[in-house]
Amino acid sequence: MTTKEIVKKHGNKRENLLQILHDIQNQNPANYICKEDIYELSKEMKIPVSEIKGTASFYTMFSFTPRGKYVIRVCESPPCHILGAQTIFEAIESELSVKAGETTDDGLFTLEGTSCLGVCGVAPAMMINDEVYGNLNEEKIYKILGQIQEKERK
């Protein structure tokens, strides 16, 4: 869908801004909201660009820089922390040679830290796009990342 169509689907009232931003980001293959879209949105919704950017940047789920096809979000909140979230984070960093906030050279993965994902029953936990992975340890991490890389190579 184009930005215009997305706005039409939800209606151009201010209340719908977050929903519209979600849709714009979801349909971008690089998982982010690009500058052109914000300008277009500003015209369609009659909201200044600065307002849109100011609002969107408040929320951690929105990104303004291109991200990988798979966004890895590792929970860093206390319940996951005491069960080893730090180890998980470091394992991913070294396996993919990226630091928090960075994207792998092949554009496949972006690594992010996040606040509680609401799946603390299986701490330490992470999400890759919409998928939840819990009870993590280093071995599991290598397996999960390996499976995705395998799938993408085909």
Binding site: S77, P78, P79, S115, C116, G118, C120
Partner: peptide, 8 residues
């Protein structure tokens, strides 16, 4: 919204 860490 349930954002409080540890709550699900």
């Amino acid at each position: 919204d349930e954002g409080e860490p540890g709550t699900f």
